[in-house]
Design a protein around this nucleic acid. Structure first.
Lengths: 238, 238
DNA sequence: AAGTGGTCTAGACCACTAA
DNA sequence: TAGTGGTCTAGACCACTTC
């Protein structure tokens, strides 16, 4: 019986554990199936529960597992691809987009938003909350920020978006980064606060400057963001 | 003296801790400054070290902190924006792109890559390793996969890329998702294995099908992916 | 050698879900 | 009410960097 690599293993236990679990997931489990509970799994692999959890956390981060308190740990389906590059000449809320408008409010602009919109810190903005689902599961929540420059406060969400549609859109700028879900976003996405999310920030540009900013928060565990062909498709359309 | 919210706090300790630390970071520390060590910090806030670490981990995930074993925890600069949407009519390795070619090998295609390239599992492919830096720090590492269909094995990296440049590029398809760094990527990015990364997969399309696939791995803690204007800029160029 | 963050343990209790 | 994952503790040792 070979000693294998147990004598000199620079890799930590949870790393090997993760590999072992990942292979078991491929060979012995099917999508949606529920795993043994954490205490049993830890005992089965001969590690402390905290160590087992470290491996599960990474697998959840990679979209292989889904854990729900009070329920259990289940095997995730492959991530769903969600398109985040709609036509570059369309405003949020124009017919056919993937979002469902929820509500509107009129808070002071967060510092970062104010900067993107070219406003002073604390200026009032319209904020329209929207959500997006795939396969009947919520995958993203978004806030559309519009300056209250020309449109008075207290409008309906649809009215706010409608004012954008009248304007001439010059282009969009988009960024993607990793974040952790704030309490409100987490609730809407059916996750715990702090869950990893992909934050997509889009700036809508007109000749006069930035007319709107959207901050969309996608569940990182279940989503794969897709950017459709940025060359041929447009050439075909034009 | 008010009891504040200590009587009924559904939020966990590490969540409050994170907020407290985040505010301290803004007001009492400067970029690059080194924080007190974890044992001292934990004592200062009256929590166990594991709880303190849970808060630090989230702040690191959000790009606010950087922790290095044997050194300490430092305050991170804002994330750097890296453009991941070069001109949609250019191949990898054409003059002026942001990457530095490292080496080439000729492995069997991983299952996922084979599928994207329309190959059978285990078919041989060229794999060109490249890296990308910003502010003298490595921010991404990439593998360019090219089928060995027309080009024999054992080529130099530059020769492999050069064969692509002769072909007519019809378009690109790009996806972004969250991953965790494999051992090799982690080493190149100066991170520990398992570190969170943004994985950008690009498919290069010709009339004949998929000519190449790139898998780029960006440090999620230090990078903000940017997608330049997808409308106006091209109109101006054309 | 001293000090840092990284890993690991063995326990406890809590919040939540479902029968 | 029983069972799940989520939080928290107090300790130990290890890997790495720096002096």
């Amino acid at each position: 019986m070979a000693t294998t690599q147990l004598e000199a293993l620079p890799e930590p236990k949870y790393w090997h554990l993760k590999t072992a679990l990942s292979e078991a997931l491929d060979s012995e489990f099917t999508v949606g199936q529920i795993l043994p509970n954490e205490r049993d799994l830890a005992a089965r692999y001969g590690v402390a529960r905290a160590t087992l959890r470290q491996a599960l956390e990474q697998l959840e981060l990679e979209g292989r597992l889904q854990r729900r308190r009070g329920v259990g740990t289940t095997v995730s389906p492959p991530r769903v691809g969600v398109d985040v590059s709609p036509a570059p000449d369309r405003w949020p809320g124009e017919p056919g987009d993937a979002w469902q408008t929820e509500s509107a409010s009129c808070p002071a602009a967060p510092a970062q938003i104010a900067q993107l919109l070219g406003l002073a810190a604390g200026d009032s903005v319209h904020a329209v909350r929207r959500t997006r689902a795939a396969h009947s599961q919520p995958v993203a929540t978004e806030l559309v920020y519009v300056p209250t420059r020309e449109l008075p406060a207290g409008q309906e969400a649809e009215a706010i978006l409608a004012t954008l549609h009248l304007r001439d859109l010059k282009g969009q700028e988009r960024t993607v980064e990793l974040g952790s879900a704030k309490a409100e976003d987490a609730r809407l996405l059916d996750r715990l606060p702090g869950a990893p999310v992909l934050v997509v920030t889009t700036r809508y540009l007109t000749e006069q400057g930035t007319a709107a900013v959207t901050v969309a928060t996608y569940r990182a565990d279940t989503c794969r963001l897709t950017f459709g062909d940025s060359g041929a498709m447009r050439l075909l359309a034009g």
